[in-house]
């Protein structure tokens, strides 16, 4: 996806969310094909909303939704994690809404990004959770880790922000770092 498409999509998404705050993605939504994780469309949409909260798409900047990061998070957990971690992830995702209602007294998602951020922060900092409830925080930590990895590994990040050079040219062994872009 190039930057222009990403921006267009993020604009569309922003519009869609304004109309459909219930986190339904419309009739075109599709399950990501997975080998190990058992997740239905509603939970996939919920995950996408959590991830979009972590790195939101704005008019200026593509975020999780525009960069399809929920797909990256799902594929990584499905292919690159051990069984136990996969179970905790799915378990936590499924208990997420109920825990919020119980312990934070809020439903997710809300209309506003800021409200969603506050809910996630509150959920992350809950203390004294039971063994039954703990997977929610582990789920959030895994989702967050892969969201960040997916963002920093995305074409957007590696072309627009910190351009990756497949053929970088000569090695410069000692140059002034002032004002030089930090890779």
């Amino acid at each position: 996806m190039d930057r222009r498409t990403a921006l267009k999509q993020s604009a569309l998404m922003a519009g869609a969310f304004a109309l459909l705050p219930s986190c339904n993605f419309g009739p075109d939504r599709e399950l990501v094909a997975l080998d190990n994780l058992q997740i239905d469309l509603d939970h996939q949409d919920l995950l996408a909303k959590v991830i979009e909260t972590i790195i939101p798409s704005t008019e200026a900047e593509p975020g999780a939704e525009a960069l399809n990061l929920y797909r990256f998070v799902l594929v990584m957990v499905d292919d690159c994690e051990q069984k136990e971690t996969q179970q905790v992830f799915v378990d936590g995702l499924k208990k997420f809404k109920a825990l919020l209602k119980d312990k934070v007294g809020q439903s997710f998602p809300q209309k506003e990004q800021q409200a969603n951020e506050e809910i996630l922060t509150a959920a992350t900092s809950l203390e004294g959770l039971s063994a039954e409830e703990q997977p929610v925080q582990e789920f959030l930590a895994i989702a967050r880790r892969y969201t960040i990895q997916g963002y920093m590994g995305s074409k957007h990040y590696l072309t627009e922000k910190f351009p990756y050079q497949l053929v970088p040219g000569p090695y410069q062994d000692c140059v002034n770092s002032d004002g030089l872009i930090v890779m």
Binding site: M76, D79, E81, G150, G153, K155, Y164, L166
Partner: peptide, 17 residues
């Protein structure tokens, strides 16, 4: 040999399987 980092499905990581 000419693939960009983002073209790898798992960001360079080998699958757990």
């Amino acid at each position: 040999t000419t693939m960009m980092p983002w073209e790898f499905e798992h960001n360079g990581k080998v699958e757990q399987k």
